[in-house]
């Protein structure tokens, strides 16, 4: 086969891939648009949102705590290792660890883990309802099924995931202090001095913008994957995997985009 045929084949492949992407992205946007209609009953939606806040927030607390402490501790050791020089004062380590926790590590790592935990749960729950016709049953009752199922999860995520990120920021500093003291690298006073000196309210705002963005990505992408499941139990598993992979990629992509736009 000559070069031109190959080139046109590749062209067709890229074109098909693009079309598939845009078709999916289009139906994702339509899915989000479709959720918004007058709620059949507000109190039911509020109840469901509170339940989901409990599922997402309280249910993920322990894993977030563990990750945050270790991440802060490891970063401290690593920064200290990379900055062995008598010219650099100890508090600098504290300021670097607290800044990088706030700007990148706490929001992004926490949310990548939540994409796995919360995302796969949402996708498999909604996916199971799809393949067992429970979503059809909701629709025939006259209920906006996407709104009823996904909206409470999205709102709960938008509230709870930023809260978890704030906890994570706080605890990664705790982890940093503990590691500093335990290894004798720097004292807690030195750590806190550095952290305080470099603290900018804008950085916290940036972290929250990231957290809200990631929360939206995780909950909407996973709901969409679950809702569009087609087939049986096997496909529910596949949707759940896709939910995690697509959320993670979208998080990293928007991470870059936000850094570019806001820093």
């Amino acid at each position: 086969m000559d070069y031109l045929t190959w080139a046109s084949k590749i062209d067709v492949c890229i074109f098909t891939a693009e079309m598939t992407f845009f078709t999916h992205f289009g139906s994702y946007l339509l899915f989000i648009k479709g959720m918004f209609s007058k709620p059949e009953k507000l109190s039911v939606y509020i109840d469901r949102t509170i339940t989901e806040m409990n599922n997402i927030g309280v249910g993920s607390l322990s894993i977030v705590v563990i990750i945050a402490i270790f991440q802060g501790a490891v970063t401290t050791l690593q920064i200290a290792y990379q900055l062995i020089s008598p010219l650099i004062s100890k508090p600098v380590i504290g300021s670097i660890v607290s800044d990088s926790s706030m700007l990148e590590l706490a929001p992004t790592i926490t949310c990548l883990v939540l994409a796995g935990k919360v995302g796969s749960h949402i996708a498999s729950e909604i996916g199971t309802m799809r393949v067992s016709e429970q979503i059809d049953a909701l629709e025939v009752m006259g209920i906006n099924s996407s709104g009823y199922l996904a909206l409470p999860k999205i709102i709960a995520g938008l509230i709870m995931i930023p809260a978890l990120v704030i906890i994570s920021i706080f605890l990664s500093n705790v982890g940093g202090i503990i590691a500093g003291e335990a290894s004798g690298i720097l004292t807690s006073q030195e750590y806190l001095q550095g952290a305080r000196e470099s603290f900018l309210p804008y950085n916290l705002f940036f972290a929250l913008v990231k957290a809200v963005t990631y929360a939206f990505i995780i909950t909407t992408v996973s709901s969409f994957q679950g809702y569009t499941t087609n087939g049986g139990a096997l496909e529910v598993g596949a949707s759940s995997t896709k939910a995690v992979v697509y959320s993670a990629v979208a998080i990293l992509f928007s991470d870059y985009l936000l850094a570019q736009l806001m820093l």
Partner: peptide
């Protein structure tokens, strides 16, 4: 929105029951 109004008057029994 009108479809949903009509659907409130419909009860449907699914082959696989589809209970929540």
């Amino acid at each position: 929105s009108k479809v949903r109004e009509v659907r409130k008057e419909i009860g449907m029994l699914f082959q696989g029951t589809a209970l929540f």
